Amino acid sequence: MLRPVVAGVDGSAESLAAAAWAAREALRQDRPLRLVHAWDWHPRQQEGEIANAAQRHLARRVLRQAEDRIRKDHPEVRLSDEQMEGPATAALLKAADQAELMVLGSRGLSGFTGFLVGSVALGVVAKATRPLVLVRADEQATDEHLPAGDGNGSTLTGYGDVVLAIGLDEARDEVIEFTFEAARVRHARLRVVHAWHTAGPVGLGAGEAGLMKGSWQGEEWLGFLKALLQVWENKYPDVEVLATVVDDRPTTALVRASTGASLLVVGHRLDERRVGPRTGPVTHAAIHHVGCPVAVVPHV
């Protein structure tokens, strides 16, 4: 049985945008879509029973609102829903474990300020063992596509680039494969970006000094990147790949590379030693500074 695409909904504009994006992704992958709403369980006392009944009623209304929107725009989606009891982060993590992909909403800001990410979403991003996508509140279907000839948004044009931000020291197969699959189902170009800093004077040994020029180092990194991607290009011959190495700060490189993209993909190293909703620097930069949907793919 195919794992579903799962979207967490809470009635907010950002969660409805996430559900709509998840519906489109379910269709792209030919997978079912499951909507989940998490609510806190109260002790079984009179007040608790009343609160639980109110929570169930609210959950049903929230789910119905999202379902109505999806059935109107995408009636062909295989849709189901689920109410989950418990703290939201724990409930969503449980749902994510059973998903092919978890989708959550995040309030989008204008310009280059990216997302406002709540504590629940951060907690899920930090600990999820399955891929997760964050979608901003004002995300529209046309935002995933290239502009029409008149410059207006359209869903009839091709998709914007799928962008993979990669560190060559932590490149993982599961992250690369996820990105190639995302590009394949969209018939989109895949742009792979590695950011690095220009080296200063480098000591070569006792009594020797040398200067590694930025252009030389950039060419070396680009060669490593192309060699890394070659096996995946052979596996996905229909995916056009553009490998790019930039001498820039990761945050700036991410924002520039993702401008006009349909999806940005970053890897997230799972670390049992981390306490609380912490992420690595690249993941942190992506979810706080990028405007397009961001896929976070966990790896060990």
Rank of each mutant, 00 (worst) to 15 (best):
V202H: 02
L222Q: 14
L204K: 00
A183P: 11
E170L: 07
L229H: 05
L229D: 02
E170D: 14
A188Y: 01
V192S: 01
H197I: 03
Q217S: 06
R189C: 03
R184A: 15
Q217G: 02
G214C: 03
Q217C: 00
R189S: 03
G223L: 06
E233F: 01
F224S: 09
G214Y: 05
V239N: 10
T252K: 05
A171M: 11
D247E: 15
D238E: 15
W196Y: 14
F224P: 00
V202L: 13
A199Q: 13
S215I: 07
P250H: 09
E219T: 02
P250M: 08
W216P: 00
G207I: 09
P201D: 12
F178D: 10
L225A: 04
V175L: 08
P201H: 08
E220L: 10
A206F: 05
E208G: 02
Q217D: 12
E170C: 04
L228H: 08
T252Q: 07
L168W: 09
A243P: 09
P201N: 08
V175F: 06
A227P: 00
D247W: 02
V202K: 01
Y236M: 04
V192H: 00
E174H: 06
G205A: 12
A182M: 10
Q230I: 00
A243Y: 03
N234T: 14
G223Q: 04
D169K: 15
V175C: 10
H194C: 02
K235W: 04
E208A: 13
R186A: 09
D248S: 13
E170M: 08
T251D: 08
E240C: 06
V175A: 11
R184Y: 04
S215D: 13
E174K: 09
L222K: 10
F224I: 01
G207H: 10
G218D: 06
M212N: 08
G205Q: 11
E177C: 07
A209D: 09
E233N: 01
G214T: 12
T251P: 00
R191D: 00
V239R: 01
F180R: 07
W221Q: 07
W221D: 02
T252S: 04
Q217H: 11
I176P: 08
E177V: 14
A195Q: 05
E233W: 01
Y236D: 07
T179Y: 02
H197W: 14
A243Q: 01
V239C: 09
D238R: 11
F180L: 10
L190Y: 04
V245T: 12
R191W: 03
V192I: 07
I176T: 10
R172Q: 15
G210S: 14
A183G: 12
V241P: 03
R249F: 12
D173P: 12
L225G: 02
F180S: 08
L211S: 14
E240H: 13
E177K: 09
N234Q: 14
P201M: 08
V185L: 09
G214D: 11
R249Q: 13
K235T: 13
